[in-house]
Computed example of a mutant assay.
Amino acid sequence: MRRYAAATAAALCLTAALAAPAASAADGGGGDAGWRPVTYPPVDYPAGERCDFAFRTEPVLDEVMVKTVATYPDGSPKTELYKGALLVRVTNLETGASWVADAGGRSVARYEPDGAHTYYATGPFLVGFLAGQGNLPRGEYVVDGVCTFEFAVDGQRTVTWVGEQKLTDVCDQIG
């Protein structure tokens, strides 16, 4: 129950942060001050790591932007906002089968000093799991809906949905 309440509060926070007008006198009313592009390079994954076969993820549309809204005393990010369109082609390197995943969700990211971080998100997002790495089986997934992603220092990953769980198994799409 506590986790659900925290996730609900986070979803409301995310909605307010990303829906509120961002214009200010400092940025000339355009609302884009402080936003910078995020670049996602192509990545190859070996057979057996996430899917039974080797595959590649490669952005075909990358308009993702990030804005740091709070920092630690050393200047490292404490809280960041992410937004923007992201379409990723996922290709089975053995058969050539491919599928384009919409991964252009929005999130508020909170970073802990020890390296753990949590994303309070509204999907869709593309995320992978190794065997035994978290609360989803080994695989590559499009996670959609309102959820939190918790990334622990030891590599464990936990996805918690608020409301309906929406999950697409990418390995099935190109297998």
Rank of each mutant, 00 (worst) to 15 (best):
V170F: 13
G134L: 14
L12P: 00
P41H: 03
C147Y: 09
Y119N: 10
C147V: 01
V153K: 11
T91C: 04
A10K: 03
A152C: 03
V60H: 12
Y40V: 06
T160L: 14
V127G: 08
D44T: 11
E63Y: 00
L130T: 04
W99P: 01
A152S: 02
L61W: 00
Q173W: 00
M65H: 12
S76T: 10
D62E: 15
P41E: 00
V88W: 11
D62W: 09
G29W: 12
W99G: 03
P124H: 11
P113Q: 14
T68H: 00
R157F: 01
R110S: 08
V142E: 09
D52N: 11
S24A: 15
V69P: 08
T39E: 12
G175Y: 04
L126Y: 12
D154W: 02
G104W: 03
D172C: 05
V170S: 14
A17W: 05
C13E: 15
M65G: 06
D27M: 12
Y120D: 14
F125P: 00
G96N: 07
R3P: 04
V159F: 10
L14W: 06
P77M: 03
V127N: 13
Q133R: 06
G31D: 07
V146T: 06
P37E: 08
G155T: 01
A70R: 15
F55H: 15
A85W: 15
Y72M: 02
A70V: 05
L12D: 14
F129A: 09
A54V: 03
F151G: 04
S76M: 05
V143R: 05
G139T: 08
D154E: 01
D74E: 01
G29Y: 13
Q156M: 05
V60Q: 13
E112K: 10
H117D: 04
A70I: 02
E94Q: 05
G84V: 12
K67G: 08
A7S: 04
N135C: 08
G105R: 12
R157Q: 14
G104N: 04
D32V: 14
G115C: 05
W161F: 08
G123Q: 09
C171N: 08
A23V: 03
T118N: 03
L126A: 11
T91D: 07
L93N: 12
Y82P: 02
W161E: 05
F151D: 07
E150T: 08
Q165G: 01
V143F: 08
T8Q: 09
A109C: 06
A11Y: 15
W99R: 03
W35R: 14
Y40S: 06
A26P: 13
T79S: 11
W35I: 13
D172E: 15
G104R: 00
L12K: 14
P37D: 02
Y120G: 01
G123R: 10
F129P: 12
G104H: 03
K166Y: 02
L61S: 07
Y141F: 15
Y40T: 11
T57C: 00
T95Y: 09
P42M: 00
F125I: 11
A6P: 00
Y111E: 06
V142G: 06
T71M: 02
G31I: 14
D52H: 12
A19Y: 07
A109K: 13
W161Q: 06
Y82M: 06
T118S: 13
Y45T: 07
G132H: 08
E94L: 05
V162K: 13
V143W: 04
T95L: 04
G139S: 08
G128L: 01
T122G: 12
G48I: 00
W99F: 10
R2H: 05
F129D: 11
G115Q: 00
